[in-house]
Amino acid sequence: MSPISMVLVVIIAFLAGMEGILDEFQFHQPLVACTLIGLVTGHLTEGIILGGSLQMIALGWANIGAAVAPDAALASVASAIILVLGGEGTKGVSTAIAIAIPLAVAGLFLTMIVRTLSVACVHRMDAAAENANFKGVETWHIIAIVMQGLRIAIPAALLLVIPAATVQGALASMPAWLTDGMAIGGGMVVAVGYAMVINMMATKEVWPFFAIGFVLAALSELTLIALGVIGVSLALIYLAVTENKGSSNGGSGGNLGDPLGDILNDYE
């Protein structure tokens, strides 16, 4: 890898680390981070495919309140670097994914460490505020962000200086049953992200929509966009129907505001 590529990779890693906490531009999402690393190292296609595969796994990873999710930033950056150094092209994608998962755990611990160190930063900010020192407050905030960036940039730089042959050797020494098995596992772990999301959102009221989505998805003619259109329409219809029901109930009471019930009654 050329020195320029290396510098660019470290910069991307830094951005991903910052975004790992900020969660604004999404540079830490696999789809973006892996593609960018692929781009600057001349392995664009592999980067995109790795990003897409990892993104599927990371769909439900989100920081809720004080809870910290598996770290997408380190997982995407490090696995993309390993994919590029390994030099196996798109064949290396499933191995890279298998490596990414333990890295997501490592990243989780790193971000928890930085979040603890940041307590010291805000204490410095308190002291600066005591003197109405705007610059001081701003500087300590920026220092905290930089720490989050270095959290990913340093491991990325370390990975880069490890000779490519070592990475290749380590990857080649993995037996086929292990890599194949990990690829199979990778196909299943997607479910964990979905399960996290469902646990957050599911109520009795919305389960039927889950069932409709599940059944409709079996029709392979429907693209994801088409499914999205159906989903939005269902949501709008449901909101409109429940609203009408609510207002007429308020006006007249009883089951007069239950159009479906009325229809059913007519058939009795």
């Binding site: 599911a202 389960w207 929509f209 989505g213 499914l227 939005v232 269902l234």
Partner: peptide, 14 residues
């Protein structure tokens, strides 16, 4: 959440 559950149902299948 309606849209989300619908999409999740299809994502799991796919």
């Amino acid at each position: 959440s309606i849209l989300g559950m619908f999409i999740l149902g299809s994502l799991i299948e796919r």
